[in-house]
Structures are given as C-alpha cells and as structure tokens.
Design a protein around this nucleic acid. Structure first.
Lengths: 138, 138
DNA sequence: CTTTGTGCAAATTCTTTGCACCAAA
DNA sequence: TTTGGTGCAAAGAATTTGCACAAAG
C-alpha cells in the first residue's frame, strides 16, 4: 500500500515539487492502473478533496507529462488517458464501452524501434481495438 | 491521375452513394495521402466548392468510416485524422510540427493480432512518435 | 516578501445535433 | 413526391487561458 510519504518521494524522483493536490493525483495513478481520464481522476478525488478543481488536475497531468512521470495514451479519441506504467505493454480499447485494458507478455520485438525509417523514434505505442468480453453478449 | 468518374466508381465499391461532395472528399483523400484532418480537407476543397460546409465533411468522413472506406487514426490527440491506405503500415507523428508520416516495409509480424489476450482484436495500430528531421534543426 | 500553485469563470477548439431547404430517383 | 443529402446555426464536450487569491519557502 502506498502512503502519502512514499508518493511524495516518488514525485521528487521526477523533480516535481509535491503539493497536496499533486501527491493525491499521483497516489491515485499509482493505485489505479486503469488509464484514467482527467474526469475519472477528478471525480475520484473530489469527494475527499472538495476544493480540488479540474483545472488543477489538468495542470498536474500536464506537469507530470513534461517531467516524464506519466505517458499520455493516444488510443482513445474522446479523452486523454494517462498511464504511469512505463513497462513494455500494449493497450486494447473496447469500441463499445471505451474501457482500456493492458496487454502484457507480448514479444519484446514488437516494441523495438524500427531502423532506417528516416525518423528518430522516441516512443512506441501499440494499440488494439475490438469488442471486449463483457460487451460481447450485448 | 484520378478523375471524377474513377472516384465515383471507387465509392460504389463501398456501397456509398456518390454525391458531388462525397466524390470531392474521396478524390482529395486518394490524391493526398497525408492523413488529413477534417479541417485540412475542408480548407482544401472550400475554395473550389464555396458552398461546402464543414458539417458535410464530418458527415462524409463518418459515412466513409462506417462503410470501411477509410480508417480513423488515433495517433494525433488533437484532431481526428483519416487514412484511405488500408495496407499494413505504421505511423510516425512529430511531436513538434504534428505531421503524420507513413512507415511501410515493417515486418508483417508486427501487425499480427496476438493470441490469448482475452480480447477479440479487430484492429491493430502501431504509432511511433518523436521529432522529424525538418524540426530537428530548430 | 517573493515565487509558485490553485481554482474559478470565461474562452477556445473540435465535433455533433436539430432543422429547414435542396437534389436526385 | 418521397427519400436522402446538404448546410447553417446552435449545442455539447474536452481542454486551455486569464486572473485573483492562497500557500510555501
């Protein structure tokens, strides 16, 4: 279980000045590895932090992005989604319910940066889409 | 060089009723393989079709999507981008200028749908990002 | 004190919707 | 003449911006 102090230290690793809000957001990301949207983060934290504003959540995530503490996923056309898991994994988005799931255990070759493309590739993102099992029945 | 009649026939392959607007949009997509945004398509066609509305461009692209005539790219967080090239290729987006480039000649294995993920995967999209050569100097 | 962060409201951007008019079969 | 397509304006949703106040060092 992460506690406030651990998360505090975690932020410092990325040279992010910890504030109450930033620590709460990072704490949420560490505990909820569900590629949340801004709105999901805000809605989850808002009850226990009534003064929190959505602007601050936006500011915070943009700061985390700049500092390299999170990755912005590109799989969902509707909302920006954020991921703290920097390990090699792909994502699956259900076209019906919109939920994003992790896919681990793929061959590492898939994530290699191809050579001789003429571009200096910094990031690789593999996205699958389809219908998830819960939606299949409907 | 495509002409109006060819594009007309091309639309019929996808069971899309050709109208002047739809033909113009498809013609643009066939000639400009630049993964354009709605706005780019609208701005390009508008001078020669002054009555064209952006709503029609939206309607048209949504219809093309439904009929499977184009693919919607997910690589650009800002705008929806469309691609008529359904062959196996990946994309590179420049984080600075936002241009999207094709990457062909990748190993076909990269585009295989992984087994035993627990999801029925319909679509695979591989996205690379970084800084393109034109932006590098700056 | 001075700098930085937060939060409200307003502004902006992208996309969809409602509805009247126009075009084609 | 009926069906479907187009285009305007308005609505909606996600995100950013401007600015005053609060917090932290």
């Amino acid at each position: 279980m992460n506690n406030y102090l651990q998360t505090h230290r975690y932020l410092l690793q990325f040279a992010i000045k910890p504030s109450v809000q930033r620590t709460a957001v990072m704490d949420y990301l560490l505990k909820n590895r569900t590629h949340p949207t801004i709105d999901e983060i805000y809605s989850a934290l808002s009850p226990s932090m009534p003064t929190l504003s959505k602007t601050t959540v936006y500011n915070t995530l943009n700061l985390f992005l700049e500092k390299g503490a999170v990755q912005q996923l590109v799989i969902d056309e509707k909302n920006a989604r954020y991921d703290i898991d920097m390990s090699l994994h792909a994502h699956f988005i259900c076209k019906q319910c919109g939920k994003v799931h992790d896919i681990f255990n793929l061959k590492p070759e898939l994530f290699e940066k191809p050579e001789n493309t003429g571009f200096s590739i910094q990031n690789v993102e593999i996205s699958y889409s389809g219908i998830c099992n819960s939606c299949k029945g409907n």
